[in-house]
Simulated assay, not measured.
Amino acid sequence: MNALMLAAVPAAALVAGLAYKARALTVSGAAAATVVGAAAFGLGGGLGAGALLVFFVTSSALSRWRRREKEALQFEKGGRRDAGQVLANGGVAAAALLIGLIVPGGAHGANLAFLAALAAANADTWATEIGAAIGGTPVSLRDFRPAPPGTSGAVSAAGTLAALAGALLPALFAPTRDILLVTLAGFAGSLIDTLLGATLQAQWRDPQNPARWTERRPGAAAPDRGLLAVNNDWVNFLCTLAAALIAILFAR
């Protein structure tokens, strides 16, 4: 283990500990963030650390913005990120760096995949948090009809613009020639996330308001649409994986 990796572990643990103290992470989330952060800091260097910190700080801040209004929308999980959320959003990025270390000549593609995965996670987070906070009338990709704000699988103008801006931010850590590729890969990943949310993600009718859909399972009820095994964490994981693969496919 090189000196950078040795320094990366305590650095990642320190950041995760501060995030836990700030109530941005649960205990399991802090443990998972230490692993993901150590990979980003130790294998991605300064750019990897910067991109990961930008994603984590902005997404955590946005999750607190207008929290009360968003809590009424009944997202599956709250503002504190647990291990499932951390790995769903950052696991692919960390794995890309590890694979790049193993595969000869794979460093460039691994770095692009890392940034694209983070761009997708950031785009999805910004779209959800900003779109839900601002409001408007989203349109469901399931039937192209208006849907209540916060509905999984629905898009709004504000959320779409937020997704594009969110994808751009981590992409700025890529080489200049690859910024557009990483941005588009991340944005595409967020659109795939929305499509999966509209078709495969488990959703239930809100018992208090049957006109509204919720990601929170009421008791042991089977989902009214989607697959029980496909929750928000799985959708986020597939979103980041898709973005990483797109970046590798079109890398120059």
Rank of each mutant, 00 (worst) to 15 (best):
N231T: 15
G78Q: 11
L172A: 07
G78T: 13
L141V: 04
F41H: 07
P148I: 05
N122M: 13
M5K: 03
G109W: 08
T214R: 11
A147L: 07
A202N: 04
V54C: 10
I179R: 05
P175T: 15
G17R: 04
A121L: 09
V155W: 04
L97E: 02
A116F: 12
A93N: 04
E129H: 12
N231C: 15
A49E: 06
D143K: 10
L53I: 11
V57C: 04
E71P: 08
A121P: 08
R205E: 02
A171K: 01
S28I: 08
L164D: 08
A229G: 13
G45R: 04
V54H: 01
L52I: 00
A107H: 02
F173V: 02
L18S: 06
A147F: 05
A107K: 00
P207F: 13
N231W: 12
R205A: 08
V182C: 11
W126T: 02
Y20H: 15
A133E: 09
S63N: 11
N232R: 13
G44Y: 01
R145I: 00
A39Y: 07
A110G: 07
V230G: 11
M5L: 15
N89M: 09
A40N: 06
L118M: 13
R145V: 00
R145T: 02
A243F: 13
T151K: 13
N89V: 01
L18N: 05
A38M: 15
T199C: 02
T183Q: 09
G84R: 02
A110P: 01
L245P: 08
G44H: 01
K77H: 12
L47R: 14
A220L: 06
A154F: 12
G226K: 04
L196Y: 02
L191A: 05
N2K: 00
A13L: 13
S60A: 06
A162F: 09
D143Q: 07
F237E: 14
T183F: 11
V235M: 13
A147I: 01
T58F: 05
L191F: 07
A19Q: 06
L43F: 10
G106F: 07
